[in-house]
Simulated scan of single mutants.
Amino acid sequence: MHSVLIADDDEEMRELLTFKLQNGYDVTAVSDGAECWNRLDTAADDLPDLVVLDVMMPGLNGYRVLDRMDGDDRFDDLEVIMLTSRGKEDDIVRALEAGATDYMTKPFSANELLARIKRVLE
């Protein structure tokens, strides 16, 4: 079973994503970018297969998490889908250039997110 790490500071969003993904994936959810980075940085050989990453979080935002991952060969095979309310072209390009696999804006279709996750992981 593929594993997914969700990083979003909105508790309702974490609960919704966990609910939607839990039947097909091993899901872990964290509430901010620092916790996401700590899990990734200390995961050693047990990295998730995918991170669903919000951009706007207190402290360490999603872009900074991507920046830390960029250039670190431990994360070469880690897929990242940005899921955020920031939908300007500059935001999307910045995330994709920093290594994000895909980018979706909120509000979003749960079915579309599931299809994107399936495409990325299979």
Rank of each mutant, 00 (worst) to 15 (best):
F75D: 01
D32A: 09
R86M: 15
L78V: 04
K20R: 10
N61S: 03
Y63D: 07
R14N: 11
E112T: 13
D91G: 10
Y103G: 01
V120I: 09
S31L: 06
T18W: 05
E15I: 13
T18A: 13
G87V: 04
L17M: 13
L96S: 02
L21C: 12
A44G: 05
V4C: 04
R116N: 04
V27F: 08
M56L: 15
Y63F: 15
E122T: 12
D8K: 13
A43C: 09
L21Q: 10
K20G: 03
D32K: 09
I6F: 10
D49R: 04
Y63P: 06
F19V: 04
C36N: 05
V93Q: 14
M82A: 02
D10C: 12
W37T: 10
Y63K: 09
L114T: 03
A110V: 15
E79C: 04
R74E: 00
L96G: 02
D8A: 14
L66M: 11
L17N: 10
M104Q: 10
D102H: 10
R39I: 11
D90N: 12
E97L: 12
Q22A: 14
A100L: 08
F19S: 13
E12M: 13
A29M: 08
V27N: 08
E89D: 13
R116Q: 07
I117T: 00
E89Q: 14
N23D: 14
L53R: 07
N111W: 00
L66P: 00
V52I: 15
Y103S: 01
S85N: 08
S85Q: 09
R119D: 05
P58V: 11
I92S: 02
L40K: 05
R86F: 06
F108P: 03
M69V: 02
P107N: 05
P48D: 11
R39C: 05
E122K: 09
G87P: 00
M82Q: 00
G24C: 07
D67K: 15
G87Y: 02
S109V: 01
P58C: 11
Y25N: 10
A34F: 13
G33P: 05
C36L: 08
F75H: 02
L60R: 12
D49G: 06
A34R: 15
G87S: 14
D70H: 14
V4I: 15
Q22Y: 01
R74Q: 05
A115T: 12
L21A: 12
Y25I: 12
V80F: 03
G71R: 08
E11G: 03
S109E: 07
A100S: 13
Y25L: 12
V65F: 06
V120F: 00
V30L: 15
Y63E: 08
E122I: 06
R86Y: 06
R116Y: 01
L40N: 03
R119E: 06
D91L: 11
D73M: 07
T18L: 06
Y63V: 09
M104T: 02
M104N: 01
R94M: 14
Q22F: 02
V80A: 04
D91T: 10
D45W: 04
D73A: 11
G33T: 09
D9P: 04
D54I: 08
S31E: 15
M56F: 06
D72I: 03
Q22C: 09
T42D: 10
F19H: 12
K106Q: 08
C36F: 06
N111R: 12
D102C: 02
H2I: 00
A100G: 08
M69C: 13
R68Q: 14
G33I: 09
G24T: 07
K88S: 13
R86G: 00
